[in-house]
Structure formats: structure tokens, C-alpha cells
Write a protein that binds this DNA or RNA. Structure first.
Lengths: 134, 134
DNA sequence: ATAGACCCTGTAGTCACTAGAGGGTCAACA
DNA sequence: TGTTGACCCTCTAGTGACTACAGGGTCTAT
């Protein structure tokens, strides 16, 4: 029920420093303190931290996380607003994938030119000189 | 032939500040100076900067760029070494794409739960609470 | 009494830029 | 001649999301 920062970190897969960092920037509410000034966490802290980590895993920025948390926290919001935020982020993820695929192709082509020989001439390096920038 | 920083920036699609930054951290050799202390660049600077930008576009870190530049600079290297560096980077890019595809799927699923209604209940937010972490 | 595992605060480092303050230089135009 | 505007300079600090110390305190067990 009551846990200290080290156990909370272990249970959430989150570094101790990150938890303190989240408290400092205000995405995680300040923990209660024991008489020795150690932080003590309740189950609601654990749930909130897991929630934050899930959103971070999905690539939401801490600013977006803050927004989402405010929504959950009881502020007026509509499903449409949440959907818009999610869709916007999804679009960004898809754009990034498309970018990386272009990079993958270019890189694959480049590496394919290498003979892998133990000689100091490399057509990858030369091809890189000729490459246009988009 | 001789160009100042603004034109070099225009011709390479690189910000003026970035060029000065590259000089400061040593990936671009210091420019010659006019009597008024303005930087003057030759064609070899332009080629080198373009080369750097191409490698950056491919996602190489500035540290990797430095390594690649050292290789071109005449240091002993083999095609096999270059290939290894390229392949390693290609693997990293592919891993990142795979990660993003997982994120895309999860996000797509989540956004799909939204009704898009003007009401304050949203199943995306709830589903996010239930989600496991991998 | 001391070792080791925890915990605390506060600051600085990471990466690759980017932005701003506060100033100098130069050509053109009124 | 004065001034406007486009350039250029250096130096410092900010970004995001942590991460890594330094320099301490606390608690339990041996």
C-alpha cells in the first residue's frame, strides 16, 4: 500500500531519478513524507505514474501528458477533443515512419555498395558525396 | 567561389547559426576571415558542409559524422569498417521503425475507440488506464 | 562500530541545435 | 550627411526528457 520511491520505481519500470523529476516538473503530485523526509507513495500515485509511462511509451510529450492528465482530472473535455489529440499524434508518428523508411532505403542502397573488403576505397563514402539533398 | 556565411547557408539549406555551431564543435574547419572579421568560405567548405548535412539527413550522429569525416580525411580505413558503421546505423533505423509501428498500431486502436462525440466520456482515456506496459 | 542499502537536495551534463542580447560593418538612398 | 536595413560578430542560455554526480542523511544488520 505505502511504498517508498525505490519500490515504486521497481514496480513501474521507472528510474528513481525520473520519479523525482516528474514530481519537480509537476506531472506527478508531491509525495507525502515520512518523519525522515523519505517520500511515501500510495496506490493512486502508482496508477498515475503507470498512466504517464504508458503515454510516454506511445510517444506523447510531457506537455501532452499534462493535458491528458488535466482532462482525466475532472476538467471539462469532450471525447472529440481527446480524439483530435490522439489523431494528431498518430499522424505525427506516421510521418516519422515515412521519413525513416526513406532513410532506410537510402542507407540500404549505400551499404549495398560496399564490397566489405579490407581495402581503403569505399563506394559508400563516394556515393555520399554525390547524393542530392531533398 | 568565395562566399560569406549567409550565402553558404542559403546554398546548403543550413542555418547560419548551425554553420557557426559546426565550426565551434570542430566538425567544420574554421573559416578564413575578411579584414572586418567576417567568415569567408571556399568551395571545399561548401562540399564538406553538404556532406555533413547529407549524413545528418541519414540520421548519423555528429559523432559518427566526425568518424566518417576522419576516414575521408585520409586516415587509414577499410571499406569493411565503413560498411560496419553503415550497417549498424541501418539496424538502428530498422529497430526504430519497428518500435514506431507498434506505437502506430496501439494508437490507431486507441483513437478508433473514440466516438468523437461532444460528450465528456472517452473510451480512449479509459483504455489507456487498462493498457499493459511491455 | 561499521558496512551497505537505501534515501535526500541541488547542480550540471547529454544531443543538436535554436534564440536572443548587444553590438559592429557596409551599401544605398533622401 | 544621416539613417535605414541587411548583413555580420561573440557569448550565453534555452529546448526535452531525462541522467549522473557530489555531498550528504538514515536505517538495519553484523
Amino acid at each position: 500500500m505505502k511504498l517508498r520511491i525505490g519500490r515504486l520505481a521497481g514496480e513501474t519500470g521507472c528510474h528513481v531519478e525520473t520519479i523525482r523529476f516528474y514530481e519537480r516538473i509537476g506531472v506527478l503530485p508531491p509525495a507525502a513524507r515520512e518523519s525522515n523526509n523519505y517520500r511515501v507513495y500510495s496506490d493512486s500515485h502508482r496508477r498515475r505514474l503507470l498512466y504517464i509511462r504508458r503515454m510516454r511509451d506511445l510517444g506523447f510529450s510531457l506537455d501532452e501528458v499534462r493535458t491528458l492528465l488535466r482532462m482525466i482530472g475532472g476538467d471539462a473535455y469532450t471525447c472529440a477533443e481527446v480524439q483530435a489529440l490522439g489523431q494528431e499524434h498518430l499522424d505525427a508518428v506516421r510521418n516519422k515512419i515515412a521519413d525513416l523508411r526513406r532513410v532506410e532505403n537510402a542507407l540500404d542502397d549505400l551499404v549495398g555498395r560496399c564490397t566489405g573488403a579490407d581495402t581503403p576505397d569505399c563506394s559508400m563514402l563516394e556515393a555520399l558525396f554525390e547524393m542530392p539533398r531533398e
